[in-house]
């Protein structure tokens, strides 16, 4: 059992069956179902005993053919930080391929905006209610392609070769 002080509060509030805690080298990861994501984050933000006022980043992971069995193919992780209490906790949700949507946290943390956009374009995950769901890092050549998925090759699918050269004469 984890000795992270926030975990008992989460179990008390949301019930043991929804909270799956994993510990590794000082990182506490709490796996929760997608349906209660916003509730959990709101609770962690507002509860004075938690005070997780900062979202460090948003990370996506593709677990296709991962050696260890996972709940679903995609994982989205929300590392939270409490500056007053100097404490970190990572909230993780799993998304299956048939339902790649997750609610946005932009209403709570403004700092989630670009990280969510990046995760969305790299994995094809839709963040519902995001104020600005444009692509962010890639250009339009990558329409419908998700580079960080394990099915996408490292060297791309010919995007980098799809330009017209200019010569000394034509310029």
């Amino acid at each position: 059992m984890s000795d992270h002080p926030t975990v008992p509060l989460l179990i008390e509030k949301f019930g043991q069956q929804h909270i799956d805690v994993r510990e590794f080298n000082g990182n506490t990861t709490v796996v929760i179902p997608k349906s209660i994501l916003v509730d959990v984050i709101t609770f962690l933000y507002n509860d004075p005993a938690c005070g997780y006022k900062q979202l460090t980043d948003v990370w996506g992971v593709d677990y296709l053919d991962y050696p260890e069995e996972q709940n679903a193919r995609f994982g989205v992780l929300y590392p939270l930080l409490s500056i007053d209490k100097n404490r970190r906790i990572i909230i993780k949700v799993f998304l299956s391929e048939d339902d790649l949507t997750v609610p946005t946290l932009n209403g709570i943390y403004k700092g989630s905006e670009w990280s969510e956009r990046e995760t969305a374009e790299m994995y094809g995950i839709t963040f519902e209610g995001h104020p600005d769901p444009r692509r962010i890092l890639l250009c339009d050549l990558f329409e419908g392609k998700y580079p960080l998925r394990k099915t996408y090759p490292l060297k791309g699918q010919g995007e980098r070769e799809s330009f017209t050269p200019i010569t000394t004469e034509s310029a």
Binding site: K155, F163, T168
Partner: peptide, 13 residues
Amino acid sequence: TYAVVQGIDQYVP
């Protein structure tokens, strides 16, 4: 990688 042009001389003299 997928995003980097492998040598600008392909497209610019």
